[in-house]
């Protein structure tokens, strides 16, 4: 091959790939609105993206699999731990990760910023990205099921799902896998059964849980009764 032909090979090869790449880029712009539910990309979602960037979330977490691998992927965080879970974690990481071997810094997130973040993560959790990440498929499913089946639950079970399952697991369901090494929060089936079942329901306290101001005395009672029956 002469040097002239080698140069032509270089030009043709590069241009061919470039044309294909730019054509697919155009195609991506045509389809991306539908794939990402762009109609739901509200100002609050954008505000949440600003918070996400301002607080440097992506330097520990991945989202859509990109970023840093120090902390869990956030693409489906909303499906995984819900609005309350996200807010609890970002507002009081030092409480949530008290027993964890990996900590999260308290980033001085305000209530408003936390709400914006939730909106952003709710939006990302619905991006059609061929069901990635694989480990969170069960949460997207269970989020759907929760919506469908929530009505049939007992008051205690419903309250437990809403308030506790973003940190605790039960019967293999919920945020933590139930293994001690998870060190996120103990599985609620693990406390000594006799002692728990002998306790009056109202003594089931949220002592080491993040303070829940929205938890009414009625909810607490219902959760206590529900948990007492589990052992």
């Amino acid at each position: 091959m002469s040097n002239r032909n080698a140069f032509l090979f270089f030009l043709v090869g590069t241009l061919a790939s470039l044309v294909l790449f730019l054509a697919l880029t155009w195609d991506t712009h045509q389809q991306v609105d539908a794939l990402t539910n762009a109609d739901k990309l509200s100002d609050q979602v954008v505000a949440g993206k600003h918070v996400f960037e301002k607080k440097n979330c992506n330097e520990c977490h991945t989202i859509l699999g990109f970023g840093v691998y120090y902390a869990p992927d956030l693409t489906r965080a909303y499906a995984r731990i819900g609005a309350e879970g996200i807010k609890t974690v970002v507002l009081q990481p030092e409480v949530v990760f008290k027993d964890s071997f990996r900590k999260m810094p308290n980033l001085d997130v305000t209530e408003q910023e936390a709400d914006d973040l939730v909106a952003f993560l709710e939006w990302t959790s619905n991006i059609d990205n061929h069901d990635w990440p694989p480990q969170d498929k069960k949460f997207t499913k269970s989020a759907d099921q929760r919506r469908l089946e929530g009505a049939g639950l007992s008051p205690g079970a419903a309250a437990f799902k809403e308030y506790c399952m973003s940190c605790h697991s039960i019967g293999g369901e919920g945020a933590a896998s139930g293994r001690p090494s998870t060190r996120w929060a103990p599985s609620t089936t693990r406390p000594p059964s006799r002692r728990t079942s002998q306790l009056p329901p109202q003594s089931i306290r949220t002592r080491r849980c993040p303070p829940r101001t929205d938890l009414t005395e009625q909810d607490r009672q219902a959760i206590g009764e529900f948990l007492a029956k589990q052992n």
Binding site: S17, L18, F21, L24, T28, H130, P133
Partner: peptide
């Protein structure tokens, strides 16, 4: 460049871009 330009696609698998 032939492989690298269009090869950018390996970063677009799971981001909500078209299946192509």
């Amino acid at each position: 460049l032939f492989t690298g330009l269009a090869g950018t696609g390996h970063h677009y698998y799971w981001i909500g871009a078209p299946r192509t």
